[in-house]
């Protein structure tokens, strides 16, 4: 069976970011950076997504949404935290309505730092995530998974 990483689908969610990283993620899809050349398609549906890109720190309102989206994604799946806010909370860490990085809520596989993260590093992070996706798929098969 072929590998998922040949054509992974990507889901983007804004936990509570300042928009900077969000527009850079969108930028990756447009002609200059064109992430589709790696076979990656941006989807809005968690049930069909393999990679979850999250920007921004988590607050109590988005916490449940992040958990729900993560649980709806099929195995194997990887999570990429884009931007320093998603990694640790960043400049907003001391705000009363920020819990911290994404890893306080769900497990994160790849951290992409930067404020705002540059498209080159986002693509780099996604490509790293593809290797992890392959490893997870192999492990899943060895354990008798069906994918």
């Amino acid at each position: 069976m072929s590998k998922v990483s040949k054509s992974p689908w990507l889901l983007h969610y804004d936990a509570s970011s300042c928009n900077g990283c969000d527009i850079e993620v969108l930028d990756c899809l447009t002609p200059k950076y064109d992430i589709e050349r790696f076979g990656i398609i941006n989807t809005g549906d968690p049930f069909q997504a393999d990679i979850l890109l999250i920007t921004g720190g988590v607050n109590s309102q988005t916490e449940s949404v992040v958990k729900q989206i993560y649980s709806q994604m099929p195995e194997p799946k990887v999570v990429v935290a884009v931007g320093i806010c998603a990694c640790t909370g960043g400049v907003f860490k001391e705000c009363y309505n920020i819990k911290g990085g994404i890893d306080t809520v769900i497990p994160v596989d790849v951290y992409v730092p930067g404020c705002a993260a540059r498209p080159e590093s986002i693509i780099d992070g996604v490509v790293k995530a593809l290797q992890i996706l392959d490893e997870k798929q192999t492990a899943l098969r060895q354990n008798g998974g069906d994918s």
């Binding site: 509570s16 300042c18 900077g20 527009i23 607050n59 400049v91 907003f92 705000c95 705002a116």
Partner: peptide
């Protein structure tokens, strides 16, 4: 959904440092 409480942070950062927070209120109108 994206409320962070940045206005409150002005009491923890001095007024020159706060420029960096002000710029991160929004990534489009930074």
């Amino acid at each position: 959904y994206v409320h962070r409480g940045l206005e409150k942070l002005v009491e923890k950062r001095d007024f020159k440092q706060y420029v960096y927070i002000a710029e991160r209120i929004c990534g489009i109108c930074s």
